[in-house]
Design a protein around this nucleic acid. Structure first.
Length: 111
DNA sequence: CACCTGACGCGTA
DNA sequence: TTACGCGCCAGGT
């Protein structure tokens, strides 16, 4: 039963969470890519906001979400940057000048 | 209420 | 290839 009050926010959140949870270990997806797959083509920023507000105890693999440039969306060298980078490297992902090496991963894609 | 900022992305120059 | 501008839009000042 769906109540009419269900805002698109909830729908959006639910879909994005599901998508992020489905990203295989060692793979990554871009904010915009997730938004698109969820049916919200121009809401890449909303995905970022979602992750920003993510509860501390969440088990979501948020670190597997990066920007369309193949880079981590935190200032290089910042605490958050390092944290995310380490998590990715532990999954076998390698970097080259702050960018994910294309040879070592593949985008989560539908084709 | 105006204005700025941001875990973004894309088209142009 | 790098740099900007603009679209998008929720939140904070």
């Amino acid at each position: 039963m769906q109540n009419k009050n269900t805002s698109i926010d909830e729908e959006f959140k639910a879909r994005i969470y599901t998508l992020i949870g489905s990203i295989p270990k060692g793979n990554v997806a871009a904010y915009g890519q997730l938004a698109k797959l969820a049916g919200f083509q121009n809401q890449s920023r909303a995905v970022g906001r979602l992750l920003k507000n993510l509860p501390a105890g969440s088990t979501l693999p948020w670190h597997r979400v990066i920007n369309s440039q193949g880079k981590i969306s935190f200032p290089v060298g910042s605490e958050k940057y390092q944290q995310q980078r380490i998590l990715l490297e532990e999954e076998g992902i390698t970097f080259r000048n702050d960018k994910i090496s294309l040879k070592t991963y593949q985008w989560l894609c539908s084709d």
